[in-house]
């Protein structure tokens, strides 16, 4: 009897697997290599969001000099379409500056997608902007989990923020043309604009 159950389980798993074929794969190429500086390990990043009108989602330009398309109104127009470098993190009232060489960024390709990058690991998630409250809902996060062994407290803090954002369901956002602030839980992250978003969001190789 047990053997029969095992055979049926095996058959069921294989039948399910065979529904996935080379033709049904969305992606069938190796992901683009991401350069990472060996001196840097997990750093972290942060998040995002927005307020604004559900304006037509714009695909972002690859050219840093080109103005990115984005929502036409409200806070979102200041940050959607751009990459943002973490400048400082405030936790429990204590603010920690994040050096520029810690590559921690948030990239908003459009008003539906946000990518966080910490030079090794990245988080990609879907966002939904509530135009009336400056709150973005975060959903569908995927985070890589490359190990790191760095005791730098700033990097560890950034890592913590990454995790907090990964687990957060929503964040509050405010933005100007030069700075973006995202708050969630006990964290508040201030970003400085760092260029236009690119289609391959994560790495900004230095």
């Amino acid at each position: 009897m047990r053997d029969d159950v095992e055979d049926r389980v095996r058959a069921a798993l294989r039948e399910g697997a065979e529904e996935i074929t080379p033709e049904t794969l969305r992606r069938s190429t190796l992901p683009e290599p991401q350069r990472s500086d060996g001196r840097k390990w997990l750093v972290a990043a942060c998040v995002a969001a927005v307020v604004a009108v559900a304006a037509p989602v714009a695909v972002v330009s690859l050219n840093d000099s080109a103005p990115p398309p984005g929502p036409s109104t409200s806070t979102a127009q200041h940050y959607v379409g751009y990459r943002w470098q973490v400048e400082s993190i405030t936790r429990n009232g204590r603010t920690t500056p994040v050096p520029a060489d810690v590559e921690a960024t948030a990239t908003f390709m459009n008003d539906r997608e946000m990518t966080l990058y910490d030079s090794v690991n990245w988080l990609r998630c879907n966002i939904k902007i509530d135009a009336s409250t400056d709150v973005i809902a975060i959903n569908g996060g995927l985070m890589t989990e490359i190990g790191y062994s760095d005791e730098d407290p700033v990097r560890v803090l950034v890592s913590d923020v990454m995790e907090a954002l990964a687990l957060a369901k929503q964040a509050t956002v405010s933005a100007t043309e030069s700075h973006l602030t995202i708050a969630t839980g006990d964290f508040r992250i201030v970003f400085k604009r760092d260029g236009v978003a690119t289609t391959k969001a994560p790495p900004r190789s230095r």
Binding site: R27, L30, P31, P33, Q34, V120, L142, T144, I146
Partner: peptide, 9 residues
């Protein structure tokens, strides 16, 4: 994809 991206890094 994440596994292979990680492997490359």
């Amino acid at each position: 994809q994440d596994v292979f991206a990680a492997l490359q890094r």
